[in-house]
């Protein structure tokens, strides 16, 4: 049962990264790729109706994590106290940046919110990458299953690491580049004219970074945590994840060169999903490895909630998910197609 919940939480987090990932990525490159006020409004128009719904995946995944693995929620949220609270502040600034930019006419007002939207999106991408890096590298858990990490210590990977060390900085950069490319694909898909062309060009250039960093981060991960290979050795079927990562990466390059934006965006989504699935597969059954004593590590088994709650949860989880997928299919279908922003009115 806990294995099933591990998969469900991982799926929800992957859905969050793929969905909110494109609007985070779009935000991160907002200032570079969109030059005029009209183009910037087009980007906001493309993320406007969906970003809030995308962010709900984070909340829903958090809530599911809370009820299925209470100790993991308690331990990780208090241990990652500082970066999590900063994530909250960044999420606030970003939400405000998107929502309030066009409430007041004026170049200064718009510039302020553009920068706020872009900088907070960029930093969030880095934070999320660093968070995943922390989970893979492990944290200094004590015997009760709690820890506290300062923002940084000596930037080395050892018994008492900080949130940031060379490895988590690397994963942060990987996340930024991957999501920026993902966002560029989305902008290319959802806008038209020069903006779309420029976004596609940026996606092509970022692709090289994505490909290079995929290899580098793979090597670094195996160096930091050789145990990631254990599951792959025991279950050969796991090889499907790394294979799919490279296949989708190749397809992304192909479709980008053919200007097939939708296929490129889907490839990028598959790539992100498989990267995360590969990491989750390698981690299982660990959910938060300890750098202190291996026995202190948190696993799905020692953090799970009681059986009855988990069984009841399956019923409403499936019901809720069917409903949610229904709403989102409807929403995305209704707002499908390219956004059009004229100097005066509004799109759609």
């Amino acid at each position: 049962m806990e294995t099933l919940w591990f998969i469900l939480v991982a799926l929800m987090l992957a859905a969050y990264v793929i969905l909110d990932g494109f609007d985070l990525g779009a935000g991160a490159i907002h200032l570079f790729v969109a030059r005029s006020n009209l183009e910037r409004r087009a980007i906001l128009r493309a993320v406007g109706p969906v970003w809030d719904g995308n962010e709900v995946w984070l909340l829903a995944a958090g809530g599911t994590l809370y009820f299925a693995f209470p100790l993991l929620y308690a331990s990780s949220f208090s241990g990652f106290y500082l970066p999590l609270i900063m994530v909250l502040w960044l999420l606030m600034m970003r939400g405000i940046g998107i929502e309030f930019r066009n409430h007041v006419e004026g170049a200064l007002w718009a510039q302020f919110y553009d920068v706020m939207f872009s900088v907070s999106s960029l930093l969030l991408a880095v934070f999320f990458g660093a968070a995943l890096g922390n989970v893979i590298r492990g944290v200094p858990l004590n015997a009760e299953g709690y820890f506290f990490e300062p923002l940084w210590t000596n930037f080395r990977v050892d018994r008492n690491p900080g949130i940031l060390d060379w490895y988590t900085v690397l994963t942060g950069v990987v996340a930024l580049v991957v999501l920026a490319a993902h966002g560029a694909c989305y902008i290319a898909l959802k806008t038209e004219g020069e903006l779309s062309v420029r976004a596609r060009g940026l996606a092509r250039r970022l692709w090289w970074g994505v490909a290079g960093l995929t290899v580098v981060s793979l090597i670094a991960t195996l160096a930091v945590r050789p145990a990631m290979l254990d599951n792959y050795r025991n279950y050969a079927a796991g090889a499907v994840f790394p294979l799919a990562v490279f296949a989708s990466l190749a397809l992304m390059a192909y479709y980008l060169s053919r200007e097939r934006d939708k296929a490129a965006f889907v490839s990028s989504s598959v790539y992100i999903g498989c990267m995360l699935a590969g990491a989750a597969f390698g981690l299982y059954p660990y959910v938060l490895p300890a750098t202190t004593e291996p026995a202190y590590s948190l696993t799905v088994h020692n953090t799970k909630a009681a059986a009855h709650g988990l069984s009841v949860g399956i019923v409403w989880w499936i019901l809720g998910m069917v409903l949610a997928l229904g709403y989102f299919t409807f929403l995305y279908r209704l707002f499908r197609g390219k956004v059009k922003v004229s100097a005066e009115g509004h799109g759609y």
Binding site: G53, V56, L59, A60, A61, G62, G63, T64, Y66, F67, A68, G313, W316, W317, G320, M321, L323, A324, Y327, F328
Partner: peptide, 11 residues
Amino acid sequence: LAMEGMFAFFL
């Protein structure tokens, strides 16, 4: 709390 996310926030 999880049900709030699944049933209310998505909607």
